[in-house]
Nucleic acid binder design. Sequence first.
DNA 1: TCTGGGGTCCTAGGACCC
DNA 2: TCTGGGGTCCTAGGACCC
Length: 399
Amino acid sequence: MLERASRDCPVLHVDMDAFYASVMLRDRPDLAGVPVVIGGGQRGVVLSPSYAARAYGVRSAMPMTRARRLCPGLVVVSPDYDQFSAVSSSVMETFRQVTPQVQVISLDEAFLDVRGSLRRFSSPYAVAEHLRARIHDEQRITCSVGVAGTVGLAKLASRRAKPDGVVVVPPEEVTTFLHPLGVEELWGVGEKTAAMLHRLGLMTIGDIAHTPLPTLHRAIGVAMGTQLHELAWGIDGRTVVPRRGDDEPDKSIGADETFGRDSDDHEVILREVLRLSGKVAGRMRTAQVCGRTVTLKVRFADFTTITRSRTMAEATDVTREIYQTAADLYAALGLQRARIRLVGVRVEGLMPRTRVQRQLVLGGREHGWQEADQAVDRAVLRYGDRAVRPATLLRGDRA
DNA sequence: TCTGGGGTCCTAGGACCC
DNA sequence: TCTGGGGTCCTAGGACCC
């Protein structure tokens, strides 16, 4: 029955079940059945709760403090991204053995267009079950698959399929499936938009579908209103675009860090800005890109967040120049004793380094810093990222 | 001890150019 | 001494996604 129902459903959304937690648990049989989360840090959030932890109400993105309150025996394990990436690559490779039409969304999910695979498989549903069996055999983790005619519907379907299942939404059942769901299930509807829709009395996707377009436009804007109205009727222009996830150049590279405790000490804050600048510049050099716009982000103790940016005449990947710009932006804030929770540095307007020719500044000593960075990169490659750091960062070690 | 860290996209106003 | 209109860049903020 599912075979036949899936015939006009060329799009699969595959979503690994509790991915980080599941990958960790398969190597830690001692933790089987124990409520455990991937996460950590004093002020962190839950990245991935195991199903045993979910039974206590623990959810992704929940503050760790709240998770521990809900589940006093909670075991917390730090993420091992190298391992997650390795498992993810294997899984994506399995997908590609079925179809080249694989769009990687993140480490743990992908869209597949399986139209080209229907000579080898009797139906999209059969592809879904084949993939689930293979991943279970090869990786010893489970996944859920949504099968539908559009990416938006496939994504909603995979959510309903969890854990360890398949949900097919054939064309004739689209509105029956879609309209009872809450508005927050739609892609693009987050906390704020959901609250706005709720104030209008729109609770379900069906409510959105039956709201006149002009009303939606007034409430949430023309672009968003049109998009949600279409999605509410299962209309979705997006297609599966084969992508590996790392084959498109980033548009920006940034790093931020929440302090263990809020700080109003300029020296502490600027030292962190320097460390983040070095981290960002290093990643830029690895990616062989330079950028022109430096953005400083500051989050205060009350969680209000501001950004300040400056666009430079020339693109750079030099730690010192990024730091100097970020430090200038910080100084221009003129903060006195404001307690700061987080600082961040991001560089935008990225372009391939080969396209950047640096102007020779009369009397300038521009090249010194670039060569210093290259020396740092070589040392880091050989000895690790604690090998070479600006002297001002060494003080942090003693603290 | 509420609320991470990596991103993308959109909006809106002002500057500036033609 | 009247005030258009389009296009692009820059800046700041906000929403959202994984």
